[in-house]
Simulated scan of single mutants.
Amino acid sequence: MSTEEKLAAARADLATEEGVLVAFSGGVDSSAVAAIAYDALGEDAVACTAKSETLPDAELEDARRVAGEIGIRHEIVEFSELDDPEFVKNDGDRCYHCRSMRLGKMFERAAELGIPVVCDGTNASDPGEGHRPGLQAVAELDARSPLLDHDITKDDVREIAATYDLSVAEKPAMACLSSRIPTGIEVTEERLTRVDKAEALLRGWGFSQFRVRDHDGLARIEIAPEELEEALDIEFVRATRAHMNDLGFEHVTLDLHGYRTGSVSPEGADPATETETDLLDTQYPTVE
């Protein structure tokens, strides 16, 4: 089945509903769902973003902007994952607890608005991409996943987003800030804040695909391979060390493996490959 046919099927499916609330992060997946829902239902479709400490400020602004591009009504609900001790301890089920809370807030707002269906942005490529405990929460809460239901893969999603002329069609993947903290290290507001500020610096310096992992005071910077050469520039080394130290990181490293999704998750990269010899520590070059 072509992407166009999958899109038509998803739109027709949603058009049978009285109303739909889309769990909306402003990323390409949820933006595609929001665009399809609005196309199918018009004012009976609502996008809803959950604002918490784990959502980067830049992502909330993107969500507002993309909702405007679509024309869909945009609701914001606020909560704190840090209120849940199970989330804070950051074990292998952190994403399950996070998704449960976020979707729970979506169902609450949907009930307030009299909307019978809550949709999320899980696509057909997600179930096969490693450790995804958050998908369990989607199933337990009985949220609809139109992309998954109609076999719409990640590549299809980007094509659909381009069809709707969305600015996020080629936007890199963006997980919540807690994904930057390795499993077993508690998630705290301090760590989330300094990661958010550190990544804002890299974004401001022109990098597009990266992560700043917080190893309890050590910042491990992952940069996409095609951008790694710029990160090896000695002026970048100086500036990064100074700014990251100001944010509260005691040590600053550049991971020579480059950017990898899930590199601190329970089933991410093999820990044996992530030794200190693979890190370029910007503390030790003498560049004064």
Rank of each mutant, 00 (worst) to 15 (best):
D155E: 14
E81N: 05
R191V: 02
E229M: 12
L254Y: 02
I115E: 15
V33T: 03
I36S: 09
L60I: 12
A58F: 10
L14N: 05
C176R: 08
D142Q: 14
E276K: 11
S100Q: 15
G104E: 15
D44S: 09
L192G: 12
V22N: 01
G204P: 01
A137M: 05
L135P: 01
H243N: 07
D83I: 00
E69G: 08
T3I: 07
D155K: 08
V252P: 00
E250Y: 06
A169Y: 13
V77N: 02
G262E: 06
G42F: 12
T275Q: 12
G71P: 00
V20R: 00
L256W: 12
S178M: 11
R238G: 12
L7K: 13
T275L: 07
V22E: 03
A124N: 11
S208P: 03
G217H: 12
E222I: 08
L228F: 14
A12S: 13
W205R: 15
T122A: 13
L228W: 02
I115V: 11
I221D: 04
A47Y: 06
V168K: 01
G204L: 05
V118I: 08
A239I: 12
N123L: 12
G206H: 06
R238L: 11
K89M: 10
E235N: 14
A111F: 03
T3M: 03
T54W: 04
L228M: 14
L7Q: 05
G258E: 08
G204Q: 08
L254G: 06
A239S: 14
L141T: 12
T282H: 04
E267C: 02
K154Q: 14
T273E: 13
L55G: 00
K154H: 14
E17C: 07
A32E: 01
T240E: 09
P271I: 14
D126A: 12
F249S: 01
E235C: 07
G92Q: 03
R64L: 08
R65K: 15
D83Y: 02
V195Y: 08
E5G: 11
E75A: 10
E276N: 11
E140G: 06
L141F: 11
G268K: 03
G130V: 03
M174P: 00
F24T: 06
E189M: 10
G27P: 06
A219E: 01
F87D: 01
E276A: 14
G262I: 03
D126T: 04
V264D: 00
A231G: 14
E4I: 15
V66I: 15
E222C: 10
F87M: 02
A162N: 07
